[in-house]
Design a protein around this nucleic acid. Sequence first.
RNA 1: GCCGUCGUAGCUCAGUUGGUUAGAGCGCUAGAUUGUGGAUCUAGAGGUCCCCCGUUCAAUUCGGGGCGACGGUACCA
Length: 512
Amino acid sequence: MAKTSALIEPRLPRGFVDSEPADIAAIEQMVAKIRHVYERYGFDPIQTPFFEYTETLGKFLPDTDRPNAGVFSVQDDDEQWMSLRYDLTAPLARYFAQNYQDLPKPFRSYRQGWVFRNEKPGPGRFRQFMQFDADTVGAAGPESDAEICMMMADTMDALGLAGKYVVRVNNRKVLDGVMQAIGVTDEAQKLTVLRAIDKLDKFGPGGVKLLLGEGRKDESGDYTEGAKLDADQSDAIIEMMSAARLDDLVDLEDDAGPDGFLDAEFKTAALSKFRITQSFVEGFVELQAMASLFAAANYGPDRIKIDPSVVRGLEYYTGPVFEIELTFTVQNEKGQDVVFGSVGGGGRYDGLVSRFRNEHTPATGFSIGVSRLASALKLTGNLDAAPVTGPVVVTVMEKDRIADYQKMVADLRAAGIRAELFLGSSKNMGKQMKYADKRNAPAVIIQGSDEREQGVVQIKDLAEGAEAAASITDNAAWKTERPGQYSVPLEEMVEFVKQIPAVAAWMKANPK
RNA sequence: GCCGUCGUAGCUCAGUUGGUUAGAGCGCUAGAUUGUGGAUCUAGAGGUCCCCCGUUCAAUUCGGGGCGACGGUACCA
């Protein structure tokens, strides 16, 4: 026996997972449904490579001390750093800028594929995961943002999740405007305030208030430094983010001009101590425009909801931001309730393309976290991960007649039936049956010397046999009755197999 | 990064108040059944009790330090 210490332990780096046939089939179904919705909305596919130059992906170059902080990076032959992509948006910006001359504007595209992040994995968070994005580049109006939100909702519906999600929509200008109003101008402090607002659904208003003030200690003992706002400031923020409707905060007449907006006042107690700002008004108007588009298209607040606590990424969103939240709780394999986070998000990023081109290029888009969504659905039993139907297995009874058996397999395949010859070394019949069972084979074909002399084959419908077997407890009876087994003339074999329900179902789902 | 819980068979877990042969269920392999998947019964394989150092006559068990898993939190383009 080999020494165990000499063997390599088969294992994966953390945050990476293998996929089995049922998982793969489920993901493929999800992807097909998403693609169908995106194409219906008029988006076309593009593909970009896994690797990009690091400078393409983000504003930072990896310093030689920590080249792999957050991303996976390697140095090319010419010593230029390249990285595995960590999302599908930066590569799109590069693609758009690189092919600017030839692309239709606005440019509407979707992309699906693996992305990589070198960070600590969590529930539903992996170091390699799949995203499915759609973006409109070169359109500035709120109708392109609203369209994206409606497509997010339609996509979730198409995935069979109607009623189990909500698309939450906000506008960064509203947040910026309120911060400006209450006198938060320091960039670092602004980021801290935004992060605090983002935690509303996690910690509630009380927790956010701590984060806006001195700081907060969580149950595990970790302390988070707060934004150091005074009471009036943090009350104003909490009032803003807790508003059920924007109209609760301020009244703006639709036909009033910009000057009229500036004369308006906040209606709520804490906010009314501060003056309203231009940025708030701009964001407010954009959100109102989107809201009326949602209403006109019959997307109610049960599907798309204006929610002033949505923040999203801190770096590049410039206007509307949106995310998909699941409205059910998720438990892991151990039965623990788990913090899952959003399964998709996006927004307007008018600055991203300008890293590559001088002119201003508005863009909006979003991304569905396919892997994270699939993992949530798997944990809650909502993932359609039925076992894959296996092949019809032709057993080997007489070793010198392999050619005859292979001919049967070829005939079945030619008719569009998934079929294979038993290739294992053991010609023991029980082994071959067990193999077929484990493969979830719909049927096996048996021809020994008796059948050969009569010109017939035994066809065993394994599903029917299993069903019949449920009432048989005696092994001898089980063997002699041979439930679900039929003797059929060889020339009728293909037609007979086609009639087996599991085979027919597979053929319908996989036309030749 | 920080905090918490946990590491014993492929999986889920018992157990050893520090003592010589470490167990169960499931799974796996074989047989009962030389041509029939389930069920049943029988037998078998499978373990550096996560690693290293220390305490001890003796450590899987106690102490220290690592590593890993899970969860929370921070960060998240």
